[in-house]
């Protein structure tokens, strides 16, 4: 563990920590909106942004943020317009993004190696300036994702209800898209643009094997993402392999371990669930019929059912009965 003394290792650890915290925080909202692959799409578009930075000799991080946000907004517009072509439109955007990136990198006379550091991450080359940008963006992402959680949750859960609660649904949807774009750029140096979506989605998938509530899922996913990110970096340093791939494989291993536990928990919950108690609404004076019934009257018992005020009567053998507690009333 002597390598921990090196500055570049310490910077890498901090970068891994903030990335692991931020990516699943946004990922939870993407999974809730059933857009698990959106992070992947933004990652593809961001490749063009990186290449734009290389061509124009500006910071690839800055151009990547700008292009990723633009791409995320286009995806959001396509999503809201809906329609059968939405799926195709997104595919066009994804492949246009990555092809444009490779093309522009060639124009800039940069080798594929330069682009590779962004495609697959190069966490050990993070300098102090990168660290400030990454850390700052990650703090903003986590603060918004956790601080506005009740509203973001309601908007993704039921947009129409959220609107009637006075929430500006479109603004919050755009906010989630922008957060996702920023997160992709934050995670670009850690796991790379091609694997960033894994860090956004896999911890969430793992967390929801074990949780029943949204808030628990969000927090557990952030903890799992951080563990996979920092753990993966340490493992990759030990056995000298690519950190990005190690982080993603570790996150997937976590899912593989949690899935059987989740399956067992769900099964146990089903088996121990009590039967629903019958609903008893009437409290008026009534005539009890001391008669044995072979079955409980219900919607499918076969006897004619008559809606009678606030309850249902069943007709059989010349009586008209309404269930009340453990007995039947004559009506």
């Amino acid at each position: 563990m002597s390598y921990l003394a090196y500055d570049f290792v310490q910077r890498a650890l901090i970068a891994a920590f903030v990335t692991g915290l931020a990516a699943p925080a946004v990922g939870t909202y993407l999974v809730q909106r059933r857009q698990a692959l959106m992070g992947d799409g933004i990652g593809h578009v961001a490749v063009t942004g990186v290449a734009l930075g290389l061509v124009t000799n500006t910071s690839p991080t800055v151009t990547a943020v700008v292009v990723a946000i633009a791409g995320a907004l286009v995806i959001e517009v396509v999503r809201q317009r809906g329609g059968a072509s939405g799926d195709i439109a997104l595919a066009l955007l994804f492949y246009g993004g990555i092809a444009g990136g490779v093309f522009l990198t060639g124009l800039a006379d940069q080798s594929a190696t330069t682009l590779n550091t962004y495609l697959f991450g190069s966490i050990t080359t993070v300098d102090i300036g990168d660290l400030w940008v990454t850390g700052g963006l990650a703090v903003v992402v986590v603060a918004v994702a956790v601080g506005l959680a009740p509203r973001l949750f309601a908007v993704a859960q039921d947009p129409e209800f959220a609107k009637v609660a006075g929430i500006r649904v479109t603004a919050y949807n755009v906010l989630v898209s922008v957060l996702a774009a920023v997160t992709v750029t934050v995670a670009m140096r850690t796991v790379g643009l091609l694997l960033v979506s894994a860090l956004m989605v896999v911890p969430v998938a793992t967390a929801q094997q074990l949780t029943r509530a949204f808030r628990d899922t969000l927090l557990l996913a952030m903890a799992l993402g951080t563990a996979a990110s920092v753990g993966g970096l340490l493992v990759s340093a030990e056995i000298d392999v690519a950190p990005g791939a190690t982080i993603v494989l570790l996150a997937l291993a976590g899912f593989a371990a949690a899935w059987p536990v989740g399956a067992w928990l769900r099964r146990r919950r089903r088996v121990t669930a009590p039967f629903a108690a019958p609903v008893l609404a009437r409290e008026e004076p009534h005539t009890v019929v001391p008669e044995e019934h072979e079955h409980a009257h219900g919607p499918d018992c076969g006897h004619p059912a008559i809606v009678h005020g606030d309850h249902v009567d069943y007709v059989h053998d010349g009586h008209r009965h309404a269930p009340h507690g453990g007995h039947y009333d004559e009506h």
Partner: peptide
């Protein structure tokens, strides 16, 4: 939705 939510939430 894609993420579980409790009745309370």
């Amino acid at each position: 939705a894609g993420v579980p939510a409790s009745v309370w939430e």
